[in-house]
Design a protein around this nucleic acid. Structure first.
Length: 112
DNA sequence: GATGTGACTGACC
DNA sequence: TGGTCAGCCACAT
């Protein structure tokens, strides 16, 4: 039991591991969970994470570094504000230097 | 029980 | 070069 629901827990756990000032993508989380093609599920899990504290959903953006989920925050600018507060530059709802700030659990947590 | 939807991604035309 | 289509899994109705 609790085999499938663990997906949400895993997503929340991974997002919590994202260090401040870094961002990750839905695909990276999905890939880490073994569902690299189920990025949608990650977004859905984030919806549940919305009701949980300690899950920096604002650090999760789409593959283009675009704040696709900003609209799900209290305010459409809340996500950008949180990122900027951590030192992440956001312009036009898009993370600047995204490629350098990208934090992939499958890659970061895979290092010895 | 079946159908629709969802904060995405990659491939194809 | 840009737009469109299908795929993935879980939850809600």
């Amino acid at each position: 039991m609790k085999d499938r629901t663990r997906f949400f827990e895993d997503v929340h756990d991974v997002v919590r591991l994202v260090p401040a000032g870094r961002v990750t993508t839905y695909g990276a989380i999905a890939a880490y969970l073994g569902l690299k093609s189920a990025a949608r599920m990650v977004g859905w899990a984030m919806n549940a994470a919305h009701a949980i504290t300690g899950v920096p959903a604002h650090r999760v953006v789409n593959r283009n570094g675009l704040l696709s989920g900003k609209h799900h925050f209290g305010s459409p600018t809340e996500m950008q504000r949180l990122l900027e507060a951590e030192g992440v530059r956001v312009v036009d709802d898009q993370v600047q230097d995204f490629d350098n700030l990208l934090w992939e659990p499958l890659k970061e947590l895979s290092e010895p």
